[in-house]
Nucleic acid binder design. Structure first.
Lengths: 209, 209
DNA sequence: TCATTTTTTGAATTCTAATTCATTAAATTA
DNA sequence: TAATTTAATGAATTAGAATTCAAAAAATGA
């Protein structure tokens, strides 16, 4: 039982992937409710009905998209966490990782950013719930990194969870601005600014004799 | 021509207000697409059709809601900006103002937070466009405060716009966490944590002889 | 090649909810 | 109070898409 994932199956997955990337563009441009299955099908060069061979329905398509990418970045971050770096460098490298991933996946993050804060289906919907849960898991592991930094004396005494929230807040804000902005500057170039604010704050050092 | 805004008109506005607050609760609980005009009408104790005497339609109702509250907080912040305080205290007092306003208007902010990042209608829709524009205006005036702080030597050299983004990022993050959290702690109590991170960063001071 | 199975298709169906509007009720005024 | 104007009502209409499904096309393999 080795290659019982072959041909047929492989082609199926390829087509599925094609549909996902068509959907990514449509959703990014018009949001969930603004997009129609017709438009996604047209863009992917399939008949409308065909999409239902690959996904249970519109929501399933949408959340599969989110799942796939979130899985990807999660794996990247996890790998980074396995490297044994000093806390501050570790945070910096995670930051770099994220910024460059986001830069490479602008369309997707347009979707993700507006989804993370959606209450509509956070409540009841099984699919929607996952998005926020995964975000919380991420905050948790980031908090763990912070805790290590505090224990090691590199970071100040403070609730590590709060610290993690502060961090993602700053990052999100720059990501959001970058995504909204028509001018296409490099997101990665914002890294020094972000670490500067997060690690050292905005107060002038001159005043602190 | 003094009180040509009377009785009739006053009653009209009262009812309009009643509808708005019913809508606030429904939208906060279910989001824009999850809410129906029927439910809002029922909650406000009106017939469905009546809502259309007060608002052009669902979108208009929704954005009127946002407009009203954003106008309110904007006026408060503007008043605060008129007081002539040193930059750091000014930022702290704006922060306090906001946190307590948000604490008093949790339902509304549930709506607002998920709206600020909505692309669906940011693009074409006249109504939707306004939300993001007002946010940008807010960033601008915050940037101006930062600029003054930099000029006065209280804040370090840095693009004041970036500084403003960092600030709202941290704030948003704590607001978001507070809104999502079922545990009802005081949002205002997070103020010291926020200022601590924003002004002084998270790096331990011990390491900096 | 041709019968059989699998996949694709998009028009027809179904569902959902916004909006309209003829009817009814309330308020105003003579 | 009765006529008239104004507002409220909610059932009926309309609109917009998601989903289904019978027919057509493609792939398979004998």
């Amino acid at each position: 039982m080795n290659q019982r994932i072959s041909r047929k199956r492989k082609e199926f997955l390829t087509r599925r992937g094609d549909i996902l990337s068509a959907a990514e563009k449509v959703f990014a441009a018009k949001g969930f409710y603004g997009s129609t299955m017709d438009e996604i099908a047209k863009r992917a060069e399939f008949g409308t009905g065909s999409l239902y061979k690959y996904f249970r329905g519109k929501k399933d398509l949408y959340f599969s998209l989110i799942d796939e990418k979130v899985g990807e970045i999660t794996r990247l971050v996890k790998a980074e966490l396995d490297k044994d770096l000093p806390p501050i460098e570790r945070i910096e490298s995670i930051l770099h990782l994220q910024l460059s991933f986001i830069q490479r996946n602008r369309d997707f993050f347009k979707i993700y950013i507006s989804e993370r804060n959606r209450f509509e289906w956070t409540i009841k919907d099984e699919l929607g719930k996952g998005v926020h849960e995964k975000f919380m898991t991420y905050i948790d592991s980031l908090g763990e990194v912070m805790r290590q930094g505090i224990e090691g004396g590199q970071l100040k005494e403070m609730d590590p969870r709060d610290m993690a929230h502060g961090f993602v807040g700053i990052v999100n804000s720059f990501v959001f601005e970058w995504i909204m902005s028509p001018r296409a500057y490099s997101l990665v170039s914002k890294r020094p600014t972000i670490t500067n604010i997060f690690f050292d704050g905005v107060r002038s050092q001159k005043t602190r004799r």
